[in-house]
Amino acid sequence: MKTLLKDREFVNDPKDADLIMINTCAVRLETEERMKKRISELRKYGKKLVVAGCLSGAEPGTVMSVAPEASLIGPQAIEKVRDIVDGNIKTALNGERASITPHMMEGKIGIIPIADGCAGNCNFCITKLARRKLRSYPLRSIIESAKFALSKGAVELELTGQDTAAYGLDYGASIRLPEVVRQVADLEGDFMIRIGMMTPEQASSIIDELIDVLKLKNVYKFIHLPVQSGDDEVLKLMNRKYTIDQYKGIVGELRAKVPFLNVTTDIIVGHPGETEEAFENTLSLMKDMRFERIHLAIYSMRSNTRSASMPQIPDKVKKQRMNMAYKLYEDISLSIHKEYEGKLTSLLLTENGRQGSVIGRTVNYIPVVVRGDHELGVRVSAKIDEASFFDLKGHLI
């Protein structure tokens, strides 16, 4: 939206604004509550208010109950943001095909959305109500955004989406994710590409080509492949389109053919139908697969989703299971990171860290904290001194 409003003046203080826009998230109940609280706070400034994002797209009635005077714009209608800001229309919740890839930079990292929405229909997901259809950005627009980021000094390009492996399905599958990665990788410059999250079912449909691009020298050996549960029956209740054996097969083939591959996953604890046995199956999967990073989340009931109508697991049980899963995750990740202690590694320094440090990434995207004020955007050699479950710490050599 800021890309489309680049000719407007942005201010840092809401008091100085003519219009205030909040871009919302609704993926979890506690997040929605924070969004509603913030909307209420922003109303007090007495300025024109625009509520954008997934809360508007999925629950417009909720937004209007908090701020009936607000204009609403859904996440798949951002092309209409100028009309909303200028007051030509009050509400825009759905749009046409995405045409302009946003220009987004975070320091030395260029963030490039390649698709909006997904091809799945998970029973627990409210995002599907906000982003109802898959919309792939045109390849030429993605390349333009990548060139823009590189011209601004980016050394890492993140190709993002709810399901990057679904890219192109809405175009008749004439161009898929691997071709996007390959064309971005062919651009001039010294940079690395990080491929964003993808579903196992879509990854399996392009696995040979995906393996080929993961082997490219300027692509991180990293894949984010959410499994969500280690139990087949729970996967059915979630409406996930694969079995645990199929998931293991995908990861096994990727790891066998892409050296040093880092597999990250997501797991939901306490989804309806998760018995004690099902939860134990999830813990077993974590042990067997040895994921370097796991995004763990307690199931959050979301309105108007199928999972919300199922018998719910008590909060106390969900919290107990979460504590067990998180402890196991910490132990597994720490044991993986301990293997790096005392070793030399090449890093690309991309971010400023806390308390006078910088963060670099290994070839398989593990963060390494380096003390000192070092120049970002350069490749360095480092020795790993210490490991935690979350990252590595080292010094330059």
Score class of each variant (00 low, 15 high):
1 M>W: 03
1 M>A: 14
1 M>D: 10
2 K>H: 11
6 K>A: 15
7 D>W: 07
8 R>A: 11
11 V>F: 08
12 N>S: 14
13 D>Y: 10
14 P>N: 12
18 D>A: 11
19 L>K: 10
21 M>R: 07
26 A>F: 06
32 E>Y: 04
36 K>V: 10
38 R>P: 02
40 S>Y: 04
43 R>M: 10
45 Y>H: 07
54 C>P: 03
54 C>S: 09
61 G>L: 10
63 V>S: 04
66 V>P: 01
72 L>W: 05
74 G>W: 01
80 K>S: 13
81 V>F: 02
81 V>I: 15
83 D>E: 15
93 L>R: 05
100 I>D: 02
100 I>V: 14
100 I>F: 06
102 P>A: 07
109 I>G: 04
118 C>M: 08
119 A>E: 10
121 N>A: 15
127 T>H: 08
130 A>P: 00
131 R>G: 07
134 L>S: 06
136 S>W: 00
149 A>M: 06
149 A>S: 15
155 V>D: 05
159 L>S: 01
162 Q>V: 09
165 A>H: 02
166 A>S: 15
168 G>Y: 01
172 G>C: 06
188 E>Q: 14
192 M>C: 00
193 I>N: 00
197 M>D: 00
199 T>Y: 01
200 P>Y: 01
202 Q>A: 02
207 I>T: 00
209 E>H: 02
211 I>H: 00
217 K>G: 02
218 N>Y: 03
224 H>N: 00
226 P>N: 12
226 P>G: 06
229 S>F: 05
232 D>C: 12
238 M>D: 09
238 M>A: 08
244 I>H: 11
257 K>W: 03
260 F>G: 12
264 T>A: 03
267 I>N: 01
268 I>C: 06
269 V>N: 08
271 H>C: 11
272 P>L: 02
281 N>R: 13
282 T>R: 04
286 M>C: 09
292 E>T: 10
308 A>V: 11
310 M>P: 12
312 Q>N: 10
312 Q>I: 12
318 K>A: 08
320 Q>V: 11
330 E>T: 12
337 H>G: 10
338 K>M: 12
339 E>P: 03
339 E>A: 15
340 Y>G: 05
345 T>A: 15
347 L>I: 10
348 L>G: 03
349 L>I: 15
355 Q>T: 12
362 T>M: 03
363 V>H: 07
366 I>S: 02
370 V>M: 06
372 G>Y: 04
372 G>N: 03
376 L>Y: 10
379 R>S: 14
381 S>T: 14
381 S>D: 15
383 K>W: 07
384 I>D: 02
390 F>E: 15
390 F>P: 02
395 H>I: 13
